[in-house]
């Protein structure tokens, strides 16, 4: 099958590129690539990076209220990792020719997106457990796939992220298990958190396959190897039996088990909510962006001070 070629790219170049990917070769910085491949990857990788950074906010807010020292340390370590993952991903995006400054500007201006899931609020301590179990669990499925993607730097960043992410999910799962087996107040707290985070997590995998026009091309280019619906189904199949074993209910009255396929089939997902939140009208979109802008603006004098010092040391006049 031939790729649609724009004016600059020949059919031969595109065919050779797709053949490289089909052979399992990695595309590295400096290699020829279609403009669209570069553009899609910049969008995906920077969005991934922004998600890690914004994702620090809902969990970071509860470090000060973690109810024992072990949980406090684990949460600090997790949020620190997320910042580190943002670093790896910004670096991977930079290899494609976009600058850190541009990416930050796009995030703060609202031009760039980040994962919708972080536009939901953390209302109780139990939310922290559920986020680790659900959200990091979903992210691991996605990142495991991306660790094999065709673009070398992004694949390698995801390999490193996957290795570090395993404890992120497990610490959340451990917390959910504990709460589900704890006092009646703890059980109620975690069930409430499950009820609020289940559907937004399912939406993390993106729109249904028949509404994802990019997917076939991303598959041909070796960026996606599994579709949104496939990943979503795997996630549901993993979680439902576990939640039920914990005595927790899934907030889906239409959830049924299909003997033939072995799949737990969910009820209808409210895609109106998904698009509303993507467009900026979710529960805490505005607060998230306000927090990022405030940190950026309040920190300007610090960044300027570091630059001025560096320039003085190098013998030049500060700007």
């Amino acid at each position: 099958m031939s790729e649609p070629a724009n004016g600059r790219e020949t059919q031969d170049q595109l065919a050779a590129f797709v053949a490289r990917i089909a052979r399992g070769e990695k595309i590295e910085p400096g290699d020829w690539m279609p403009d669209d491949y570069r553009r899609q990857l910049i969008r995906m990788i920077s969005q991934h990076a922004h998600s890690e950074i914004v994702g620090m906010l809902p969990e970071g807010a509860w470090i000060t209220r973690a109810p024992n020292l072990r949980r406090k340390m684990v949460l600090l370590a997790k949020v620190q990792d997320e910042a580190g993952h943002g670093e790896y991903l910004y670096h991977a995006a930079e290899t494609l020719g976009v600058s850190r400054q541009e990416m930050i500007d796009d995030l703060l201006s609202g031009r760039a997106k980040y994962s919708n899931i972080f536009n939901y609020p953390t209302l109780t301590w139990a939310d922290i457990g559920v986020i680790g179990y659900f959200v990091d669990g979903a992210a691991i499925l996605n990142q495991t796939m991306l660790a094999r993607c065709s673009y070398g730097p992004y694949a390698r960043a995801n390999i490193r992220i996957c290795a570090e992410e395993s404890f992120h999910m497990k610490q959340g799962k451990e917390m959910v298990i504990r709460l589900s087996q704890g006092s009646s107040e703890q059980r109620a707290m975690v069930q409430d958190a499950v009820n609020r985070w289940w559907w937004p997590t399912l939406m993390m995998f993106g729109p249904p396959d028949d509404e994802s026009p990019n997917t076939p091309q991303l598959v041909r280019w070796g960026i996606k190897t599994r579709t949104n619906d496939e990943l979503r189904q795997t996630f549901i199949n993993n979680l439902v039996p576990e939640l039920r074993a914990m005595g927790l209910s899934v907030p889906d009255p239409d959830l049924t088990f299909d003997e033939a396929s072995g799949n737990w089939l969910p009820g209808a997902i409210d895609w109106d909510e998904f698009w509303r939140v993507v467009k900026g009208d979710g529960p805490v979109n505005r607060q998230r962006m306000a927090a990022r802008r405030a940190a950026h603006d309040d920190g300007r004098w610090v960044r300027q001070a570091f630059e001025a010092y560096a320039q003085k040391q190098a013998g030049r006049q500060p700007a």
């Binding site: 950074i53 620090m56 906010l57 970071g60 807010a61 470090i63 000060t64 020292l69 406090k72 340390m73 600090l76 370590a77 949020v79 620190q80 910042a83 580190g84 943002g86 670093e87 910004y90 927090a291 405030a294 940190a295 309040d298 920190g299 300007r300 610090v302 960044r303």
Partner: peptide, 24 residues
């Protein structure tokens, strides 16, 4: 740890959070 997520730049956030973790 009150600075986590709000530091002047990402690198400072990672570094200062690390110090908070060590102190804990």
């Amino acid at each position: 740890s009150e600075w986590t997520g709000h530091a002047p730049i990402l690198e400072e956030d990672i570094a200062f959070t690390n110090i908070a973790l060590d102190e804990l």
